[in-house]
Design a protein around this nucleic acid. Sequence first.
RNA 1: GGGGAGAUGCCGGAGUAGUCAAACGGACCAGACUGUAAAUCUGGCGGCUUUUAGCCUACGAAGGUGCGAAUCCUUCUCUCCCCA
Length: 305
Amino acid sequence: MVDTVIVIVGATAAGKSEFAIRLAQKIEGEIISADSMQAYKCMEILSQAPTGPEKARSRHHLINFLKPTEVYSAAIFSALAGKKIKNIIKRGKVPIVAGGSGLYIKALIDGLFPSKGKNIKLRKKLQALAGKKGRAFLYERLREKDPAACGKIHPNDLKRVIRAIEICEVEGKTKTGLARETRGIKDEYDVKVFGLTMDRKKLYERIEKRVDLMFRKGVVKEVERLLCMKPGITAAQAIGVKQLQGYFNKQYSLEKAKEILKRDTRRFAKRQLTWFKGDKQIVWLDIDKRGKKQAVNYILKSITA
RNA sequence: GGGGAGAUGCCGGAGUAGUCAAACGGACCAGACUGUAAAUCUGGCGGCUUUUAGCCUACGAAGGUGCGAAUCCUUCUCUCCCCA
């Protein structure tokens, strides 16, 4: 018999964490956070990581375990989560992967193609080259190396252009050619993916409230402290860091910072929705209309069936 | 009461007779996405259609001039500022 892994996805502020805890309590589950920011220490308010009492209600994994200076990535997550899943199942519990980092979840479920990883030196070199000769120049270089990838990437999408070139140089193969050796947990387990949705307006309201709460809890201080620690490449991207930095640098008022923090969170939620919309294996549950209890029951039914 | 400035699309804001459904920015909507993904990037954005094109409705309101008006004239309404 194949073991089941439950995955809960959805936009930020959709109520994934709370929902996952409820579910975990019902089915003897343990929660694995698929969230690029909750993995970090020292940014609990910013990342809306589960608090003490929440953690007491069910066991959480991959939360608050990295220093802000450390790097996190879809590949690291995927490897760690894979181990956690195995372990949880061994102990007779049900793994519940919950989070909003679409790529991380995809990397876990479907796998990533084999790669030696990044080459920072090369990236810097390419970055500098783009600065000097323009993005189009790099794009043309990519066209020579991997025309297929070139067709899928927009010339302005510098990060992707660089990564695609990097793959060619580091792996000796094209991104396109590398593909299909990927292995993810879907090959080992019965993976059931559920998405939490609600009315867009409702979601935006929840985001507003959440940001207001963040300020009341003291994000400003948290980010101030975080900046002193010189956060690494991953942690520094958290929504709120850049926005508050503008305030610290006196570019705009705190009110303004809050406003753009809300806006950027909305935009993020929008991107998450676009990502998840494309994933046809997701079973969507409108927890606002349906109610959480019913949604939990629905999941229970579908995993025992 | 007197004088001045102004009213533009969801918002800010350019335009001051033809090439204007109206620059630019914001908000919003839609999309892409394989090792930095809370990142990076793209498209749309008055309505309708047979959507590399056409038609309709639009620049506070009502009239007017003119081949032609968001742009000029008249009156009205409203807003802001200064003097009383």
